[in-house]
Nucleic acid binder design. Structure first.
Length: 519
RNA sequence: GGCGCUUUCGUCUAGCGGCUAGGACACAUGCCUCUCACGCAUGGAACACGGGUUCGAUUCCCGUAGGCGCUACCA
């Protein structure tokens, strides 16, 4: 193929929020474009006026902004190949439809939806193609006068592509190699509808890709069956020399059960399928988003990149720049990938740990405030550092109690409440309390209070020196009971660190309170 | 039903004729330890099946079975 400039596009239809599978498709296009110094185009395919959803376009743009996937041209980004919204390209399509009509590659069909339904009832596996088109109402069977009359009457019609049967059509796919099908199984696809004066996907897609000089079409596998049709269209226009190269990506499958990942699966199974939270303008329904769940965009990108592709070695953590460098269409897998969101959580954990504590603070502070706690960034960063390697308990979808690493900033709250709020009551029945609070403990804690009170310097080092000398002399381990006093149960960081964080006064206050309650 | 794509641990995958079939997530165990952990170490776990081709198949070919997709005046 000719060595022309790499230009790829992501072309969603604005029928709702961006699906996570669409995000991955866009990501691969982006990686491919950037690796080759090419352009990445954002086109809106709104040729189905019935399915338009307000706000979807803005949502999609905001999603990519959050993810760090940047377009070079397109709707809202400018460029020299516009307009980039298909509903604004009506005149262009009309011209090309006419060209096909003039060349005898397409024809007008007047069959109403009802008539078509009737035919489908009448003939099993009815298909509008070479075997049936001569029994339908179209410009092939009607006289020129009849056709003109129908149009003059204002009768609605569609333009159908005339598929020549009995030909093996080959698609050279970058991921799958040569794919061929016989043109006889293709139907005479509708390319244009007079009702709304808009083309269908197939026509608009080919015309736009050609006019926008798209070099590679990287899209989901669901398009593979219609790829031969697209090849035929390029031929019909005489554009085969500049036809883009195709790559059909494997689909994202449900984590459990059968079928591809759908918009409805997400919240049902406990994970988002959309990058951003989506508020449905019609139903008012809210679907969760990765951003709102506390995912880091770079973690989501990394996770998604590896669902259907890998660099050929064991490397898993990769920045966007590394992905751009390493991405390779020929290393994409061919079969669908189950969406393993548990691994997504792990990716977020990895990326969260790479962030210095002060970068956790803004989000952490928000959560604290929501719980009525005011603190300082310094203190909050300290807490993050003490607790970021901990584990959080959660309930999975089957109602089982499970544990996992701190993977989201929001995981911190249940683990860190005691840093800011003293335990109000002490539960004698708590397993940890029962095990570590013995008859003599109150006395020992009293003694420890005495030791702490003697400290002028309440730093970790100072405490450690004095307390350790004391425990050696007395030969016992006060830490678990001390933990009960300050935390209320068996959680938290190193005791010296915790005490130093709370300060002498608060530490002793909590201890006295515990002694009084647990007596 | 028709057509196409696809098939390695539970999951994501490496492998591109000869390997004790590798890694990661998840799971289990041990070590560490002032709690829960992190970390570290260890472990269980896979080539769908049947024919070929070949000295030799996880790898190439053909079937079968399973999975996925498409089959609209939706994209």
């Amino acid at each position: 193929m000719s060595e022309r400039k790499v230009r790829v596009r992501f072309a969603p239809s604005p029928t709702g929020p961006l699906h996570i599978g669409g995000v991955r498709t866009a990501l691969y296009n982006y990686l491919f474009a950037k690796q080759h110094g090419g352009d990445f185009i954002f086109r809106i395919e709104d040729t189905d006026s019935n399915r338009f959803v307000p706000g979807a376009e803005e949502y999609i743009i905001e999603s990519f902004k959050w993810l760090g996937i940047k377009f070079d041209e397109g709707v809202s980004f400018g460029g020299n190949y516009g307009p980039y919204r298909q509903s604004e390209r009506r005149d262009i399509y009309k011209k090309y439809v006419q060209q096909l009509l003039d060349n005898g590659k397409a024809y007008l069909a007047f069959d109403t939806p009802e008539e078509l339904d009737a035919k489908r009832q009448e003939i099993e596996n009815f298909q509008y193609d070479a075997t049936t088109r001569m029994m339908m109402r179209n410009s092939l069977t009607l006289s020129k006068e009849e056709v003109d009359a129908l149009i003059a009457e204002g009768k609605q019609y569609v333009v159908r592509f005339m598929i020549e049967p009995g030909r093996d059509v080959h698609v050279d796919d970058l991921i799958r190699g040569d794919v061929s099908i016989n043109s006889s199984i293709l139907d005479d696809k509708v390319l244009y509808k007079s009702a709304d004066e808009l083309p269908t996907y197939h026509l608009a897609n080919i015309v736009d890709d050609h006019l926008m000089e798209v070099s590679h079409v990287i899209r989901g596998e669901e398009w593979l069956p219609s790829a031969p049709l697209h090849v035929l269209l390029y031929e019909a226009f005489g554009w085969q020399d500049t036809m883009p190269r195709f790559a059909h990506l494997p689909l994202l499958l449900k984590p459990v059960g059968n079928g591809k990942l759908s918009k409805r699966d997400g919240d049902k199974l406990g994970f988002p399928v959309f990058p951003l939270e989506w508020h449905d303008p019609k139903s008012g329904e809210v679907s969760s988003g990765y951003r709102e769940k506390g995912y880091l965009p770079e973690a989501l990108v990394n996770f998604l990149a590896l669902l259907g592709w890998n660099p050929g070695n064991d490397q898993e953590i990769m920045s966007m720049d590394e992905l751009i460098k390493l991405f390779d269409l020929s290393k994409c897998s061919k079969s669908g990938a189950r969406f393993d969101y548990v691994k997504g959580i792990w990716f977020n954990h990895q990326y969260l740990l790479k962030k210095p504590a002060d970068e956790w603070v803004p989000e952490f502070d928000k959560i604290l405030r929501a719980n009525g706690i005011e603190s300082t960034p310094e203190k909050e960063a300290q807490v993050v550092d003490m607790m970021k390697l901990k584990v959080i308990e959660f309930t999975d979808n089957d109602g089982n109690k499970k544990k996992r690493n701190v993977s989201f900033v929001s995981d911190l709250w249940p683990l860190t409440k005691f840093f800011f709020v003293a335990p109000e009551t002490y539960d004698k029945e708590d397993k940890f309390v029962r095990k570590n609070w013995k008859e003599t403990t109150a006395m020992e804690m009293d003694e420890l209070i005495g030791v702490l009170e003697s400290l002028d310097d309440f730093s970790v080092e100072s405490q450690k020196e004095i307390i350790e000398a004391w425990t050696e002399a007395r030969d016992f381990k006060p830490w678990n009971a001390w933990r009960v006093c300050l935390v209320g149960t068996g959680q938290g960081p190193d005791m010296y660190e915790l005490a130093a964080f709370l300060g002498k006064e608060e530490t002793i206050k909590r201890m006295e309170n515990a002694i009084a309650q647990l007596k």
